[in-house]
Nucleic acid binder design. Sequence first.
DNA 1: TCATTAAATTGTT
DNA 2: AACAATTTAATGA
Length: 249
Amino acid sequence: MTHDLSLHHRRRPPTQAELRGIPWLQQLGPEARERAVAALLVGDALPGDHVCRNGRSVTYWFGVVEGLLKMSNDNADGSTVTFAGLPPGGWFGEGTALKREPYRYNIQALRKSTVAGLPIDTFHWLLDNSIGFNRFVMNQLNERLAQFISAREIDRLGNLDVRVARSLAALFNPVLYPGVGEVLRITQQELAYLVGLSRQRVNEALAALQAHGAIQVEYGGLRVLDLESLRTSLFLDASPAMAKREKYG
DNA sequence: TCATTAAATTGTT
DNA sequence: AACAATTTAATGA
């Protein structure tokens, strides 16, 4: 179908600006930092490109410098389940890198993105030699666990407006995705792929969220005005079907 | 730098 | 899925 593992092609050393966008570098001591910077590589991924594939062996620990990726899996029946969107500042694959096991999911670009990779040997060296790095990875694992638990809930939500709201809140997680400020660069089409809805329905949901002052829709992205409201979505009524389920279980 | 054109994105039906 | 309206990006003088 589309190209594969773009990082393995036109890879290059990261620029100074790209290094600044890598959150865990700041937490390293001088020696560890120097070693990490020397080993880091970046590459460009075009829309549809796979950064890693289910079943492949781990060669890098990956992070998003620029753009937007999605983490998904294919079911036996051919359908696709999306676990998470990965905006700038997000790093992933530490679980499989730790165990040196094959990836258990696919990561592909939703739009032209810049992806950084830390070779797995350097990843393990940092684990053995840097406390700051260990703190970052531990924190990362913990946050992601929480994110996946809430993702399970999101999928069961009957109210699609709420589903969009919660998915957006996940993308604005400051711990996992420090590269995302108050404005998230994401088109409504991309968000639709991520949430598993039509673009029309996402457009409708965004309008509803904006009407309640939770976000501000902008061209090619959106701005968060009230993250807490997005998380709880209390201002949106649960769907009738949902209320019935609550009542009669 | 500005004007024109093409491409991308959005809002609606 | 298709459409027009709007915004951005690209081009070249």
